[in-house]
Each structure stands twice: as structure tokens, then as C-alpha cells.
Amino acid sequence: MRVTRGLPRGAAGRRRPRPRLRRAAVALVLAAAAAATALVLAGNSGGSTGRHALNPDEANRLAITRFRNYQAGGRAVTLTVPSTAGGLVVTGSIDYRVGIGYGVVRGSGRDTSSDGLIEWTSTTVLVHPLADAPSAAPVSPPASGWYGRPLTTSGSSLDSSLAIALGLGSDRPDNAELLPQNGAVRVGQDTVRGHRVDVMVGPRSSAAKGTSGTVRYWIGPDGTMYRVRAGVASESQPVVIDFDTQKYVAVRPLPGVSATP
């Protein structure tokens, strides 16, 4: 009797695909490991949009953001001012080293009566009424036709907004160590005119005069300020201050105007 060693003829053929199955299983394991690694890396990249206390980098950027405006000399700004009468928009420039803002103010609804040119310091507002206000203020302010008055930080959403915007510059950085202790937090991420920014809420103790509640900052990776939103004591809606909305034009003080940086 002849004895055949090994497997039946059909068995060997049935076992041949097993190396392929093993290779497929290994590929799945490697893919899963790669996916897990990608998730870990994404989690460490700072892409989280949740609210958390400022880390050292975020605190440093918030501490220097007003100083960045001062270093730049001036910034182009657009102020969207809340008002029950229709709202105002101020488009212009602020010289943070001299402490003067200049631009054109345009309103909607009943607020069109405020249309015209405007120049302001921390203590004074000068207005030049215009029936048909331009979209941008002329580089050289008119020599006449201006009316001056003291700037007030209570009871006027326009004046409060002007004071807040002017206060967004400082000749020195804030104390980064004190910011988290005083309640500053990061609340998320956003994109402003193509710039990726972190959104931070400033400390309670440094809220600008004339504001109500907290001040929210949109800050870039190098500490550049791109947007600020602050509550105004006299209105239910906040003022929104956007930077670099147009080209910066150097501010020319009117005769007799003395700024208070």
C-alpha cells in the first residue's frame, strides 16, 4: 500500500491565499496606527477651538498686542458703532504714537445727521459736517468748518467707541504673567481677512474706560491685533473695531489740536 505524505491536493491550493490575508491585516493595523498618530499630532498642534486659560505663548501675544499698534506708528481702522438710531461707521486711521484719530463718519437711519469728517484725541472731538460724506476722508483735512467739543466716555456710543479705539495702543507691553491671573482666556480661533487668529478675552481689570463687560481680541501669531469687540455702557450691542480694512493714511492734526498719548 502506497502512503502519500502531506496534504490532499486541494488543501494546498486552499491555503495559498493566507499570506495575502496576513498582508492585508498588517496593512490595516499600520493604517490604524497612522490615523491614531495623526490624531495625536493634530491634538498637539494647537488647533483646538475650545475655551481655556492662556498658555505662556498666548499670554505673551495678548500682552504685546497694544504695543504692536504703537510700534506700527498707526493703523487703518473701521469702527462699527452701535446706536438705536441706526448705527454709525467710522473709517479712518489712528496715530498711536501721537494719540490722534482721523476719518469719515457715516450713519444710517436718523444717524445720517452725524455724517462728515471727524478728528479726535482722548479729550476732544472735532467734527466737520458734510451732507454727502465721502467713503474715505481726504488726506489733508479742510482748514475750516470744524466744530469742537469735549469727548465724553459715558452716554455717547460714538465717543465711547472713539475712546476705546484710541486706547488700543500703548508704549509698553502689558504684564504677561498677570493676564491669566486677572481672568484673560482664549475662547477659540477665527479667520479675519485671510489672517488666522486666536480669539482672546482680555482681563477684567484692564477693560477700557467706557466699556461694559469684557473686551474680546482677535490676535495673530505675532501679536498683531486684527479685530476688537467691546461692550459699550450706553448700548446693548458692542462696538466692533477692525484693523487694516484699508490703506493707512498718516493723520494730520488740525491747527490747535494737542494730543494726549
Results as ranks from 00 to 15, higher is better:
residue 37 T to K: 09
residue 77 V to F: 02
residue 95 D to Y: 00
residue 139 V to I: 06
residue 114 S to K: 04
residue 172 R to G: 13
residue 79 L to K: 00
residue 197 V to G: 03
residue 194 G to F: 08
residue 88 L to W: 03
residue 161 S to F: 02
residue 35 A to W: 15
residue 212 S to P: 07
residue 204 R to M: 10
residue 232 V to A: 02
residue 105 V to R: 04
residue 151 L to D: 04
residue 258 S to D: 14
residue 24 A to T: 13
residue 78 T to D: 05
residue 147 Y to S: 15
residue 248 Y to G: 02
residue 129 P to A: 07
residue 48 S to N: 11
residue 213 G to I: 13
residue 77 V to H: 06
residue 222 D to N: 14
residue 18 R to T: 10
residue 129 P to G: 11
residue 261 P to G: 05
residue 240 V to E: 15
residue 130 L to E: 14
residue 156 S to C: 07
residue 126 L to D: 05
residue 75 R to C: 00
residue 121 T to C: 00
residue 233 A to Y: 09
residue 162 L to H: 09
residue 195 H to D: 11
residue 254 L to E: 08
residue 161 S to M: 05
residue 177 E to Y: 06
residue 218 W to F: 10
residue 143 A to W: 03
residue 206 S to H: 10
residue 253 P to F: 06
residue 253 P to S: 09
residue 166 L to M: 10
residue 238 P to Q: 04
residue 259 A to W: 07
residue 52 H to T: 11
residue 134 P to V: 12
residue 144 S to R: 07
residue 78 T to L: 01
residue 65 T to L: 09
residue 256 G to L: 05
residue 131 A to E: 12
residue 200 M to C: 05
residue 48 S to C: 01
residue 151 L to I: 03
residue 2 R to K: 10
residue 88 L to S: 02
residue 203 P to Q: 08
residue 72 A to P: 00
residue 138 P to F: 12
residue 165 A to M: 12
residue 143 A to G: 12
residue 14 R to F: 06
residue 139 V to G: 02
residue 65 T to K: 01
residue 74 G to E: 00
residue 153 T to G: 06
residue 53 A to D: 15
residue 210 G to E: 07
residue 122 S to D: 01
residue 108 S to D: 15
residue 215 V to W: 03
residue 67 F to T: 09
residue 25 A to F: 06
residue 150 P to Y: 05
residue 82 P to Q: 08
residue 212 S to W: 07
residue 183 G to R: 08
residue 90 V to L: 15
residue 221 P to D: 13
residue 209 K to V: 14
residue 81 V to W: 01
residue 24 A to C: 04
residue 25 A to R: 15
residue 19 P to C: 11
residue 101 G to K: 05
residue 25 A to H: 06
residue 126 L to T: 06
residue 251 V to D: 02
residue 192 V to D: 01
residue 213 G to M: 04
residue 107 G to S: 11
residue 183 G to W: 04
residue 33 A to R: 05
residue 235 E to H: 03
residue 69 N to F: 02
residue 168 L to P: 01
residue 97 R to E: 06
residue 13 G to P: 00
residue 143 A to R: 08
residue 25 A to Q: 12
residue 158 L to G: 02
residue 249 V to A: 07
residue 260 T to P: 05
residue 121 T to K: 09
residue 5 R to P: 04
residue 51 R to C: 05
residue 129 P to R: 10
residue 30 L to Q: 12
residue 240 V to K: 04
residue 36 A to P: 04
residue 119 E to G: 01
residue 45 S to Q: 11
residue 154 S to D: 15
residue 173 P to K: 06
residue 200 M to Y: 03
residue 19 P to Y: 03
residue 121 T to E: 09
residue 100 I to S: 00
residue 171 D to Q: 12
residue 9 R to H: 07
residue 125 V to R: 05
residue 156 S to H: 08
residue 12 A to L: 14
residue 80 T to C: 03
residue 220 G to A: 15
residue 151 L to R: 10
residue 230 A to E: 03
residue 100 I to N: 00
residue 178 L to A: 10
residue 161 S to T: 10
residue 126 L to F: 01
residue 260 T to K: 02
residue 153 T to A: 08
residue 242 D to T: 11
residue 82 P to T: 06
residue 83 S to G: 15
residue 158 L to I: 08
